Simulated assay, not measured.
Amino acid sequence: MKMEEMLSFLRELEEHNDRDWFHAHEEGYRRATAAFEQLVGELNLALHQGDPEIPLAAPKTLTFKLMRDTRFSRDKSPYNPSFRAHIGPRGKLPVPVGYYLFLRPGGRSFLGGGLFADMFRDATTLVRDAIAAQGERWGEILDAPDFRAHFTVGGSALKNVPRGYDPDHPQAQYLKNKSWYLEYPLGDEQLLAPDFVDFAAALFLKMRPFGAFLNEALAPFEMPSR
């Protein structure tokens, strides 16, 4: 019921994406947010048990706000009608990479992992260098049957292999990337299943070798200060 309450709130928010409606439905927002934080806490515990790099954290510190920054956007709708959380070695910071949960009704939810941000040039260089130097290991991770059965690597990419890298490298297609991430799509019926937390945690942990490779490469990276 709690998951249905979350999805129902998001459906209504998408239909009535304005501040007056939101303020008139703050009680529904609080209930849906509390349900999402409970879900994130349960996932955090399950991932902590399966991946020792993931610490336990207060769920609220792992979630993102619904309020949008519209200052530089053509879309002036004030709210993002989705619940989002990142459960990583440093909480919701994008680096080190972790596990990303995105809930939006209508079959638009997904479980994600990897480096989604492509604006950190130093991070991109570190990962490219690691793939160039450890192409065989990278290929083994991506070619593992359990990985291939569930994931395809996504990310923004250049048209050509950048200067300084071998265009004939066995992993040349991934040297073009500026980001490297995974997305496993979820239908609403999967979200409503009673074993969703167990399913999501097991699916996330199948991403672990991929994330471990990225985090080893990203070890020298420091998030820019605001």
Rank of each mutant, 00 (worst) to 15 (best):
G135C: 09
P96E: 05
G88Y: 10
I87S: 03
Q134G: 11
F116C: 03
W138N: 08
G135F: 05
D75L: 00
R128L: 04
S82V: 15
Y100Q: 05
L126H: 08
T61W: 07
K76D: 11
R137K: 10
K92D: 14
F72P: 04
F110I: 08
L93K: 15
L103C: 12
G88K: 11
R128Q: 08
Q134I: 01
G107M: 04
F83R: 01
F110R: 07
S82T: 14
Y99P: 00
T61L: 10
R84V: 14
R90D: 13
R84D: 11
F120Y: 15
M67S: 12
S109K: 12
G112Q: 01
G135T: 03
R128H: 05
I87C: 01
V97E: 01
G107A: 06
P81V: 00
T125D: 08
S82A: 15
L101S: 06
F102I: 02
F110Y: 15
G114V: 02
G88Q: 09
S109D: 13
R84Q: 15
R74M: 09
D122P: 12
S109A: 15
M67T: 14
L126T: 06
L142V: 03
D69W: 08
A123G: 11
I87T: 04
D122S: 13
D118I: 00
P81T: 00
G88F: 10
A123M: 09
N80Q: 14
R68K: 15
R71S: 12
Y79S: 03
R128M: 11
Q134N: 14
A117Y: 13
P94G: 03
P105G: 01
D129T: 12
S82C: 15
T70L: 08
G106K: 13
K92Y: 02
A130N: 05
A117P: 01
G114Q: 03
T125M: 06
R74W: 07
D75R: 02
S77D: 12
P96C: 04
F110C: 07
L115G: 13
L66I: 05
P96A: 08
A85H: 13
I131N: 06
R71C: 09
G135D: 04
Y99C: 02
F120W: 11
A133N: 11
T125N: 05
D129P: 05
E140A: 12
G91M: 10
A123V: 06
D75Q: 05
P78D: 07
S82M: 10
F64H: 10
Q134M: 04
D118L: 03
G135N: 06
S73C: 12
D75E: 09
